[in-house]
Simulated assay, not measured.
Amino acid sequence: MILLAIDCSANLCAACVYDALAGRDLGRSVLDLGKGHAEHLMDVIAQALQRAGKTYADLGAIAVSTGPGSFTGVRVAVSTARGLSLALKIPAIGVTTLEALAAEAAGTFPGRAVLAALDAGRAEIHAALYDQGRQVRYGPAVMTLEQAIAMANETLAVLAGTAAALISEAAGANFDIGASAATADIATYARLAAAKGGGGRPKPVYLREADAKPQAGFVLPRAVP
Rank of each mutant, 00 (worst) to 15 (best):
A38L: 09
V224H: 09
R208L: 10
A22R: 15
A57I: 10
Q147V: 00
I62M: 08
G133K: 13
T183Y: 10
A157C: 06
A102D: 01
V74N: 01
P225N: 09
I62R: 01
K196T: 10
Y138V: 06
I90S: 03
K54N: 09
L86A: 14
A182V: 12
C13F: 05
A87Q: 09
V64C: 12
A212G: 07
M1F: 11
A113N: 05
A103I: 02
G67L: 11
T66W: 04
L21T: 14
D119Q: 04
L145Y: 00
V205H: 00
P91T: 03
F71R: 05
G111D: 11
A123T: 01
C13L: 08
A181D: 15
R137T: 03
G161N: 08
D19F: 03
K196Y: 11
G172D: 10
I186G: 09
V158N: 00
D119L: 04
G36R: 09
L156V: 07
P140F: 01
V114E: 06
I167F: 02
E169T: 14
G161E: 04
G161K: 03
V76W: 03
M1D: 11
T183H: 14
T96L: 06
A63R: 06
A106Q: 08
E209D: 15
A46G: 14
E169D: 15
A210P: 01
V142M: 05
R201H: 10
V219R: 13
Q50K: 15
G172I: 12
A223F: 13
L59R: 12
V142G: 01
A92F: 00
L41S: 09
A22Q: 15
T108A: 14
F109E: 02
H37K: 13
L3D: 01
S29A: 15
G178R: 07
D185G: 12
A194I: 08
G27H: 07
A187W: 11
D131K: 06
G198T: 08
G133Y: 09
L115V: 09
P204F: 02
I177H: 08
L12F: 14
P221F: 03
R191A: 15
P214D: 03
A194C: 13
E104P: 03
K213G: 03
T155R: 09
A152S: 09
I93N: 00
A10S: 15
T108P: 00
G178D: 10
G53R: 13
N153F: 00
A148W: 00
G111A: 12
T144A: 00
A187R: 13
I6G: 04
I62C: 03
G178T: 10
T80P: 02
A100I: 01
